[in-house]
Each structure stands twice: as structure tokens, then as C-alpha cells.
Amino acid sequence: MRNIRDPKEEFIVSDCNVKIGNVTLKNRLIAAPMAGISDRPFRALCCQMGAAMAVSEMLLANTDIWHTDKSALRMVSKDEEYIRAVQIVGSDPQEMALAAKLNELNGAQLIDINMGCPAKKVNKKLAGSALLQYPKLVEKILSAVVKSVNVPVTLKIRTGWDKANRNYLDIANIAQDCGIAALTIHGRTKACLFGGEAEYESIRQVKEHIHIPVIANGDITSPQKAKAVLDYTGADALMIGRAAHGNPWIFEQIAHYLQHGIVLQQKTLKQKAPLIMQHVGALHALYGEYKGLRIARKHISWYLKGYTDGEYFRRLFNAIDHADEQFIALEAFFNKLN
């Protein structure tokens, strides 16, 4: 497999709109759905910072559990300002179709089907990337979901179950034939989890074999890397996940680089402070004090990673049990910065 490295020579490639069915993206950047991360505050932040779309964390297709607070908070709302994209996960075609329809009625403008999650608790229910082993079931699920809604349906996959069983081209063809509007490929097998290098050659092959939009995912960590992946794979768009942890500014940086060929200067932590405070406030507002301040802890840990005194402050911050005190501590920390 050919390595993708950050290029140092001038390119230039202009940014462009991407159409997924009747949904038009303002650029080629999508925030990935990440369990426990891609809630409403995080999605809004990513879009505010330049992502054209942010997909919700996966929602189980079993509607019997949708009455729980956890499921309710994962659903999109019609009053959300940005494109409302919901990811669903499951293995029963009719259950998936019903979940898609109910989300459409709830305001979803795009439905994404998860066949890429490598987590054991998902795979043991024959969902996520486990489905890649059963192409006929994949076809039944995709057909049922596409027929159930009037909004675009997209699919997210890995390249296969393991390196001996890569079937990404077969799944891509099935997806296109079933009416899937765009295909996202994480360039790893299920067995690879998040180790090793992403298989950009596999993504390139898919782009050469199908005509629906292809979205590349995996190891896109900088503006230069984003440009290199687009060039090499020919993908229509990029999906960025782990690189946005504590760094939603990556969307702004990549969008600017793709459009102008110039790398924006990194913001200082003091410049980032207002957005960090905004994020924490949104978490408190959505989840309430008890859960909101606990979720805020992991985000603050990511925001402050690598900064002087960041680890010391993180330990102090994690001991705070009142929302108001989190704000007081953050303000004091940011005010001390030069």
C-alpha cells in the first residue's frame, strides 16, 4: 500500500460543494459520528468551526429503548441550525427502516447507516462492521431503509472484516444498486480497529468503481494530510473523527487550506478559551448539572492536552462537583495565560 504523506509542494485545489441526494454541503468536510462524543453541542461546535455537516452518534434501531434519556439526547431536533444527519445501527431490516422513518419524522434531513463500528458490544449483535460478513443481509437492510424515507440515505463501512476478507468493492456496488446516496469508507478492517495506517488505496479503488459520492475516513489529522488524501483517493469529501477531539478548529484549518493553499496559524489557548467555555455551557444546558459537568471533564482533558499546566489543572477540574465552579476554575485558568 502506498503511503500518504503531507506534501510540501504547492498544489492548488479549490474547495467545492458536495451534493448528497438533495442535501448540499458547503464544503468537503464532515464531522464523524462518534459514540459518546458527537452530541448536539459537539456537532454544533464542529459546524461552527467549518464542518459542512456533523453526523450524530449512532442511535440503536431498537425503538423500544428510545424512551430512555440516553436515546432521547442522541436524537436530532428540528430546531437545530445545521444539517440534521442521524446515524442508525442495527441488523434487522424492518427495524432499521422504522428507525429511519421515525428519525425523518423527527426532523432528520439525512440518515446514515453504521456498518463500520468495530466495538464488540455492537458486533456481537450482528451490527456495525459485523454485517460486512453477510452481503445479502446488507442488501436487505439498505433496500429497506432507502425505501422507507424521502431523505438521502448514506452508508459508512470499513474495508472488510479482516485483511483476508476485504469485500469493500462488493459492498460498495450493493450500496449503489440499493440507492445509497453516498458511501463513507474508514480505511481499515474491523480487525484493525484503529491500529496501523489507513488503506487509502482501497478508498481509491472504490471511487474508481462507483459513481455515487465517496467520503474518505481515517487518519486525517492535518490540512496537508487532508489535501493529500483527497488527491490520492479522488474522494468527494472527507470525514474527520478522532482528530477533532479537543480540536474542532481542524475543520476551519482544513477548509482554509483547501481553498487558499495557506496553513492558518494555530490559535493560542487563550484565543480558544471563549469557544471552550461555550462548549462547557452547552453541555450543562443539555444534560443538566450532574451529567453535564462529568461529560465536560473529558472534553477539557482533550482541549488542554499538551499545554503547560494542563495536566495539573485537569486533575483539579475533575474533582469539581458543581457546574458553576467549573466555570470559575476555567476562567481563572485562562486568565493566568500570557
Rank of each mutant, 00 (worst) to 15 (best):
Q48I: 09
F327W: 07
K19H: 13
P41I: 00
E80S: 03
Y290E: 15
K70E: 08
I185S: 06
K140E: 13
S222K: 11
G195A: 11
G306T: 10
D112Q: 10
G160K: 07
G128L: 04
Y232C: 06
L110W: 03
V122I: 15
R74D: 00
H245I: 05
T68F: 12
I254A: 10
G90R: 04
P33K: 03
I250G: 05
D219M: 09
I262A: 06
N150S: 15
I157E: 04
Q253S: 13
M53H: 02
P33G: 02
R5Y: 14
E104N: 04
N173D: 11
H245L: 12
Y312I: 15
A44D: 08
E208C: 10
A181G: 04
H209Y: 14
F251G: 05
I203D: 04
E208L: 13
A255K: 11
D219V: 08
I212L: 08
R74E: 09
P152W: 03
L293H: 00
A182W: 04
L193N: 15
D236H: 08
R84I: 06
G160V: 02
I240G: 08
M239N: 03
L238W: 05
L293A: 01
H186T: 03
L98T: 12
L337A: 00
K272T: 11
K147V: 00
D6P: 14
C117F: 04
R43Y: 01
A319Y: 04
A72P: 02
G195C: 06
A130K: 08
G261V: 08
L275Y: 12
V55Q: 08
A244Q: 09
V89C: 14
G292N: 00
I328F: 13
Q278A: 08
P93M: 06
A216K: 08
K101W: 11
A216I: 09
I113L: 13
G107K: 05
M75T: 14
K227G: 06
M239W: 07
Q133K: 15
E208G: 10
A282M: 07
A130I: 07
Y82R: 07
R297T: 06
